[in-house]
Write a protein that binds this DNA or RNA. Structure first.
Lengths: 342, 342
DNA sequence: TTGAAAGCGCTAACAG
DNA sequence: CTGTTAGCGCTTTCAA
């Protein structure tokens, strides 16, 4: 900026005024400075600018890592933000294995005082709101209470998934649950149990295990499940990543999906359609969730009064990873003719 | 930081030393300060820190917008960066319609003096390198020359795509080309022409039109192509987004893909498998490209001597959007009931 | 071993 | 209308 000032023969203060369109600068000066700025390709440093002004027109989206779930949100957020005059800054603050708790607090602390005017945080577990700084949570720990939130109807989705499996005649249904600290994971398990109860099918507790929503941990859990003497004939995985992991493990131990094992996921990340076989799953409107979260944040920053909680519907997407339960599928059932249907 | 200093009964200078692990602080003081930092949940402001120290351990990845192409790169970059001690900051600096030229220069100028130690820029057209700041380009304007670069073998991929269409018996093949300012787009068109020439098939210039790599512009181009009295029987689209757009347009004008029109794309973004019908395409190893770009950047920042250009292979992914050319496929025939096969 | 002071690039008050 | 000055939160001499 001092370069610009020197070249244009004015002070940095004047340049600053021109850059920020403040009143009180002669038209001729404005034009001269503009010209120099253009020539020199000057652009204000985000760091310095925000340090001083506490307003940057940059909105943050904080994630642990850039995986399919968060990048889908990002696509939606990006579309929503286009044309609003805000820019988007996505920050990945998780560490190596993505398990470190507290990344959300750290990232927020690093960016919030400066740099960004507000933030969307993806699957946060603990976030104490700094006052005067706006935060929106997507799929958080605490559920609807507390922070402004965007999520989907996890409970209903889980019921949908479980009922679908039941309707195919499955009874020994396993559930690989997600991160126990996430409300969504708890609701999915609760939905699973509700649907089973409503159908009068007892849940075998040995078939319900934590998978943690991540590829490696879910694979370990799936391996345990499938090694059981009376293994499940169907698995409802807590998310698509776990489901895809489960299918991989099934293949490894010589099981064919969906003939020997039906698998259903949750999320409908694009990767679920790329899996072999293509994954049947419960769709969350991921991009829309990202967009809604940004909209909510923009409204908050702009002081717009509005509903602080957005819940979007889920739906069943039938692809090829589930099949009717047949006698030959079950390790424990005596042969019965015909496919069951509910 | 002054809060911490006050609470711990020391000066901010001392706190800074503790935070940065500098020598010359009594062990007892270190522990006391650490304790306070922990209690207060203090985290240094990225903005202020970088303004002063010019080293942040944050690497940037600059994109025009978060669409499927850049988010795939992001996934790869995220994995590569995990465990290196760097954090990833993705910045979307494009404006509303994503067409504004110069976003790369602006974003770079805003972030480079401070905030990030180096950057990967996705599909830049013009970038003047500031010395002392490391930049890696993915799929750039200028091709291999100039900046350190990561790209894929666009020419070979285009030949692959065209030959595949040719092998299915198509002769009237259209090409919806990409952004003329991108080397990749030019190479894809060149590959198309080469393959056609090698096969002794003349290119009808009316069937080669700019689509610009984006959904809307490609749709307009596709509409023109399909409205031609002697429309093509197959289209090689410059990227998957254009290809999917083309399929949408085809449906709109009553054409069935692949029976009436074969479509092949380029990129293999996850969305291509979600399209109906599933898109046959040329795969670029997108995530690997993102990872390689980060690796290259990390090496540059770390002063490692290495090859500054990485080119990765492309491959044909056959799905369901292409079919053999049959007489009934031609536009000059009256519609016939029944499937066009045999 | 510690703290006072200067300054990173910028903006905001105020004086000229 | 313009420039001088102070200070955002931090790091870094340098003196105590």
């Amino acid at each position: 900026m001092s370069d610009v000032a020197r070249t244009a023969g004015v002070s940095v203060a004047t340049v600053s005024k021109v850059v920020n369109g403040r009143y009180g600068v002669a038209q001729a000066t404005v034009e001269r400075v503009r010209e120099v700025i253009h020539q020199l390709g000057y652009e204000a440093s985000l760091g310095a600018q925000s340090l001083r002004s506490h307003r940057t027109n940059v909105l943050g989206i904080l994630v642990a890592e850039f995986e399919p779930f968060s990048t889908e949100l990002l696509k939606g957020a990006s579309k929503e933000v286009a044309g609003t005059g805000y820019q988007l800054l996505a920050y990945s603050g998780g560490d190596a294995d993505g398990t470190a708790v507290g990344w959300e607090r750290r990232s927020l602390a690093r960016l919030s005082g400066t740099l960004i005017d507000g933030a969307v945080i993806v699957t946060p577990t603990v976030v104490e709101t700094k006052q005067g700084f706006h935060v929106v949570a997507v799929d958080p720990h605490t559920g609807p209470s507390g922070l402004p939130t965007v999520d989907s109807d996890n409970f209903a989705g889980a019921v949908l998934a479980t009922n679908y499996l039941l309707s195919l005649g499955h009874h020994r249904i396993g559930h690989i649950s997600g991160r126990p600290d996430l409300e969504s994971a708890r609701l999915r398990e609760a939905g699973f149990r509700r649907a089973m109860a409503d159908a009068g099918v007892a849940v075998d507790e040995r078939l319900v295990r934590v998978g943690g929503f991540r590829v490696e941990s879910a694979a370990a859990t799936a391996a345990e499940l499938l090694a059981l003497p009376d293994r499940p004939t169907a698995v409802f995985a807590g998310n698509d990543l776990s489901a895809i992991s489960t299918m991989d493990v099934a293949r490894t131990v010589g099981l064919t999906v969906p003939d020997d094992l039906s698998v259903i996921g949750f999320d409908n990340i694009p990767e679920s359609a790329l899996a072999t076989p293509q994954l049947t799953t419960i769709a969350q409107p991921l991009q829309r969730m990202g967009a809604e979260a940004m909209r909510l944040l923009i409204d908050l920053v702009g002081g717009v009064e509005r509903d602080l909680h957005v819940r979007l519907p889920t739906e069943l997407v039938v692809r090829s990873s589930c099949a009717p339960h047949t006698p030959s599928t079950g390790p424990d059932r005596p042969p019965t003719a015909g496919a069951a249907s509910g």
